[in-house]
């Protein structure tokens, strides 16, 4: 009798099959990313064969669906920028403030109660936020500015921007909270022992330490705002509008994508394909933001040797 059994060949085969299945599964995620990229890229290339890329990037007139249709996306980018700016103006201070409260001031008891509530906020579907923006916030804004004698549109950038900001609060607060809590307690103690107030300790020691993570959270929120669709589809306008006034109606990249694809246009018309050109822009921008965000959080992790983020 041999002291060690020879490798069971049948057994080896089974292991190999399983191994192969696992690799195939892992490949799907790669295929998906490239699937998204190429499905957008090919249609977008088709679009740019029909229309000028340069005009798309720099043109200020967007008028699809007419004989002399024009596809200058600048007003669309501007609207996206404005609504995103409003959203971030709401989400950054409130999200960060909430994170600071939860991680630095709240007792464990309070924290255990409040965190799930913020998670509910994070779990509300965007279509619901959109409904809320259109049916509650937008009319309230119109009424408020009416009482001041200022005209505001029912599809104002302000309404969708504010609600989008609220949607992003938990994105920023959750990650920032994790990062702030990962700053070692010895830092706080050292600062307090030097006779610093708690506020000074947080603002001068804790927050600067957590800064890469916080910026990463903000960038993640920014990327969410740029790609957000339902809120703007339901509460923002359809009209490409190059304006600085947040009370006017404006449109965004995502709104135009939906608008182009939901109609009964022919698939190969420039009207439809323009959606893919806009989608390509969105893809590239959010990809870059994500890469920046990931590298920042990696830096933070290395600095404090935390693995929980």
């Amino acid at each position: 009798m041999k002291p060690f059994a020879l490798k069971n060949r049948h057994h080896g085969l089974k292991e190999q099959i399983i191994h192969f299945c696992l690799i195939s599964a892992a490949t799907v995620s790669i295929l998906t990313t490239f699937g998204v990229l190429f499905s957008i890229l090919f249609e977008a290339i088709e679009f740019f064969q029909m229309r000028s890329f340069w005009y798309f990037i720099t043109g200020t007139e967007w008028s699809p669906g007419v004989d002399d249709s024009k596809f200058g996306a600048v007003p669309i980018f501007a609207g996206t920028f404005m609504i995103t700016l409003i959203a971030m103006a709401v989400a950054v201070p409130i999200g960060l403030g909430s994170a600071i409260f939860l991680s630095e001031y709240a007792s464990d008891f309070l924290r255990d109660k409040l965190k799930p509530l913020l998670e509910i906020l994070a779990g509300i579907p965007t279509v619901v936020y959109g409904f809320f923006a259109a049916i509650t916030v937008a009319p309230a804004i119109v009424n408020f500015f009416d009482s001041l004698g200022i005209h505001a549109s029912f599809n104002s950038a302000l309404a969708s921007g504010i609600v989008m900001g609220i949607m992003i609060i938990p994105v920023i607060s959750s990650l920032s909270d994790d990062v702030i809590r990962a700053v070692p307690d010895s830092q706080r103690k050292a600062s307090l022992a030097l006779g610093m107030t708690q506020g000074e300790t947080i603002s001068s020691i804790v927050l600067p330490s957590a800064l890469p993570g916080i910026i990463s959270a903000i960038i993640l929120g920014l990327s969410k705002a740029l790609g957000e669709t339902m809120i703007v589809v339901m509460a923002a306008g359809l009209r490409p509008n190059l304006s600085w006034n947040p009370l006017e109606d404006m449109t965004t990249v995502t709104v135009r994508i939906v608008d182009a694809l939901v109609g009964d246009n022919e698939f190969n018309s420039p009207d439809t394909l323009s959606a893919f050109a806009l989608g390509l822009v969105l893809f590239v921008v959010t990809l870059i933001l994500n890469i920046i965000s990931i590298s920042l959080i990696r830096k933070f992790k290395e600095k404090y040797k935390v693995n929980t983020l």
């Binding site: 830092q187 103690k189 050292a190 022992a193 600067p208 330490s209």
Partner: peptide, 11 residues
Amino acid sequence: GMVFQQPNPFP
């Protein structure tokens, strides 16, 4: 003033 067990300079 206070000095701690683990050296804890600020980053």
